[in-house]
Design a protein around this nucleic acid. Structure first.
Lengths: 123, 123
DNA sequence: GAACCCTATCAATGGCGTTGTCAAGACATA
DNA sequence: TATGTCTTGACAACGCCATTGATAGGGTTC
């Protein structure tokens, strides 16, 4: 399944226009443009300058939403965290995850009923 | 360095009362109490409940001041960064440092003990 | 041509960070 | 003992930020 002959990087392929992306992350399109102005995301553009968000972009935005809404971190804090992540290899933010809320060893039980960014389970 | 024949941990020894600590970090005593209420610092107490800040406490506060004032990170962001630091070994915040300010001095060869913003050696 | 996108601007809302002050009480030191 | 600093708790003001919203004029897509 999942297209055995489709091992391509479709997670990085730009597919969603801003209205769709905004709906996916429960934010206002304006907010996504602000994130971009702040340098937190950098969606692709069509030859005619239309923003196109990839699945990776969506996940990044969901991280921002998690940090800002659930943790109360402001955009400067998000920027610092992302900067830290870039400097130290990767996956640093994951450490924020198994907080105390979830022992990730029972994930194959079935329903991922996470109380965290709802779409980050499958990173 | 650090006084001859004094191998004790005097960096962790509580010495400063709140007014002195506040002066050292250029903050209001009120602000230090807020940091404590937020769980960002935890100064020692005398048997009579007087707060006493150690050199380590001072450095931690200076980190908070650096993150909030210079980088614009809010207290929730500081908390997240500290939490991340606890989860991932140590010294994570140091990576934020060689940003652009430190391009001139690569002075010390191997003293892995100081993890302080350089803004504070004017103490 | 309708519905969407672009940039840019202005604004309202709510919340946060910091400082400040006031109170009433406990402590420290000269 | 008297003065000064500490304690907690409350209230407030100032400025800034995050988010959403609306508006304008113009381009893109179907």
């Amino acid at each position: 399944m999942t297209g055995a002959g489709r091992p391509d990087r479709d997670d990085s392929r730009p597919v969603y226009v801003i209205s769709v992306a905004a709906t996916l992350v429960s934010a206002h399109p304006r907010t996504l443009r602000i994130y971009e102005d702040e340098g937190l995301i950098c969606p692709a553009r069509t030859p005619t300058n239309i923003r196109l968000y990839s699945e990776e972009d969506i996940r990044r935005i969901l991280w921002i939403r998690h940090l800002t809404r659930d943790r109360g971190v402001n955009l400067a804090g998000v920027r610092t965290l992302f900067e830290l992540e870039e400097r130290l290899g990767k996956r640093i933010l994951e450490a924020l995850y198994d907080e105390g809320m979830r022992s990730r060893d029972a994930e194959l039980a079935g329903e991922p009923d996470v109380s965290v960014p709802h779409d980050l389970d499958h990173i």
